[in-house]
Write a protein that binds this DNA or RNA. Structure first.
Lengths: 171, 171
DNA sequence: GCCATATTGTCAGTATGCTGTCAATCAGCG
DNA sequence: CGCTGATTGACAGCATACTGACAATATGGC
């Protein structure tokens, strides 16, 4: 918490100890580790999450995909386009609704997913590795809790359930 | 930690429970809260950190600034330009070294800083508010520890000491 | 003083992220 | 059926971020 009882004395603690700054730093570090570990696959963290979600929810549309992984819809358009260009997913508008474009993973995408998942797991483990095992669990538990409780504070709150329900694929 | 003992069963847990995903979500939420609280000041989290650092290290150059707040040098160029356009900082190349451009905060910048700091503190507090006070401390302590231990993993490691030393302003 | 090397700021290119807008389309209501 | 309002995908514009490159400049060894 920044020390604010002396407004005229501004130190870098106002930055270094701020939660927001630590969240940003950690995000930068996490992305850096992810990209380094997965360099051979040329897949970013966002693309990975989208690919997993499309694999898990075949025939999902972009709007619902954005709710399932809590990414902005505007951003997601470009991500989808890149995944499509790489041949990892397909976009078909065979629905009754002529607006939506349904997303499915290709064989190539599923194959890449199988290969990259253990590598991603290694990257995820590396992010927490400097901490003692008990501290890793504590940190992840508190962070998961905080993210969940703050869910509505972001522009695109996570709506994990929506996808399956609206597609009528049993609850 | 993702459950990887069944490669053929891919669930969204591979995303939702991944540290990297939680770090990203938390960052999005933190920025969202910051921007919302500080809307009246038209200042982003990055611009705020840069402004604090320039205020704390008058006459710092862009490269050392990037080390002090651990932001990418390329990115920082645009940030500096925006702060300058807003009249919050000044850039002068009065050094012996014709390459460097020294940064100083303007009266207007210092004034804005005084006004925004308590608002930023409120935003920072709001990010952690859903947690119990004890849990907030635990989370911040572990995160600060993890960021510090992972410092070298990012492209621009934090070098908090560099600035003062290289400017010859006592150790 | 000269030259190999390093540093500084800048830029182009790519990839998230957000805000706001838009046309096309759909759904519901009268 | 026709109008209103909501939804969908797309886009423009701005702001981080990173990679890699570049010219100008500085520094060290000789």
């Amino acid at each position: 918490m920044p020390n604010n009882n002396k407004p005229t004395l501004v130190t870098m603690d106002a930055v270094y100890t701020a939660p927001g700054y630590l969240f940003r730093r950690m995000q930068q570090i996490a992305v850096s580790i992810f990209v380094e570990e997965c360099r051979a696959f040329d897949l970013t963290p966002v693309q990975y999450a989208a690919l997993i979600a499309i694999h898990t929810h075949p025939g999902i549309d972009a709007t619902r995909l954005s709710a399932v992984i809590a990414f902005d819809r505007s951003t997601l358009g470009n991500v989808i386009e890149r995944l499509q260009t790489k041949g990892l997913i397909e976009r078909k508008s065979d629905s009754d609704d002529k607006r939506v474009k349904l997303l499915t993973i290709t064989r190539q995408g599923a194959s890449l997913l199988r290969e990259i998942m253990p590598v991603v797991d290694r990257a995820q483990a590396r992010m927490l590795q400097p901490l003692k095992p008990a501290d890793r669990k504590t940190l992840m538990a508190l962070l998961a809790q905080l993210v969940d409780l703050n869910n509505e504070a972001s522009r695109v709150p996570l709506r994990a359930e929506d996808a399956l329900e609206h597609l009528g694929k049993s609850g």
